[in-house]
């Protein structure tokens, strides 16, 4: 096994474990922390794939901004482990089973195909570098880029509309 492979498996194991813990842990705060771990692990994968820009953005935006926001909210609400009573056992079981089945079905469908054995370019390539991405983003993807400003505007208005206290 090469270093890359060892790193891949290690990060994969970390990501999966943390993901499971996000779902399984009782306390919301723990969940958030585990999720941050997942994000870090995924950023690690990005680095392995030489998608440096995304790796950084992932940490800054996701782990840094978004998850902190989550953390704030959770703490603001003062939610702790006990605040969440048990969900219906059967439902939980059904959820677990159907999620598992979905996984099995997807894997089963994909594992035996020719496509599945294509190799992934690890490390090499410079398309993930910030310069190249910038070129593409502002040349080819300028339209969606501009349009997504509408998205942000509406999200902003939304946050204001929803968050603002109504005068009675």
């Amino acid at each position: 096994m090469s270093i890359t492979e060892i790193l891949f498996w290690g990060l994969a194991a970390l990501a999966l474990f943390s993901a499971v813990m996000v779902v399984a842990s009782k306390s919301p705060v723990h969940s958030i922390l585990y999720l941050i771990v997942v994000f870090f692990a995924i950023s690690g994968h990005y680095i392995l794939l030489n998608a440096q820009f995304l790796a950084i953005v992932n940490i800054i935006v996701y782990a840094g901004a978004i998850m902190v926001l989550f953390l704030f909210v959770v703490m603001l609400m003062n939610l702790n482990a006990e605040s969440e009573p048990k969900k219906h056992r059967m439902l939980q079981f059904a959820g677990l089973i159907s999620g598992g089945c979905l996984f099995l079905v997807l894997i089963a469908a994909l594992s035996e195909t020719a496509q599945a054995t294509s190799l992934v370019q690890m490390g090499g390539g410079n398309s993930g570098l910030i310069k190249n991405l910038g070129m593409v983003l502002f040349k080819d993807y300028v339209l969606p880029f501009e349009i997504s400003s509408v998205l942000f505007l509406s999200a902003m208005i939304g946050a204001v509309v929803i968050g603002k206290k109504e005068r009675s």
């Binding site: 969606p144 349009i147 997504s148 998205l151 509406s154 208005i157 929803i162």
Partner: peptide, 24 residues
């Protein structure tokens, strides 16, 4: 598909807000 995704989100996000606009 990029435009589809962004378009759908542009439609959806304001809708979430409008749905919840009757705050009390």
């Amino acid at each position: 598909l990029v435009m589809l995704f962004i378009g759908i989100e542009i439609v959806s996000i304001p809708l979430y807000i409008l749905t919840g606009s009757d705050k009390r």
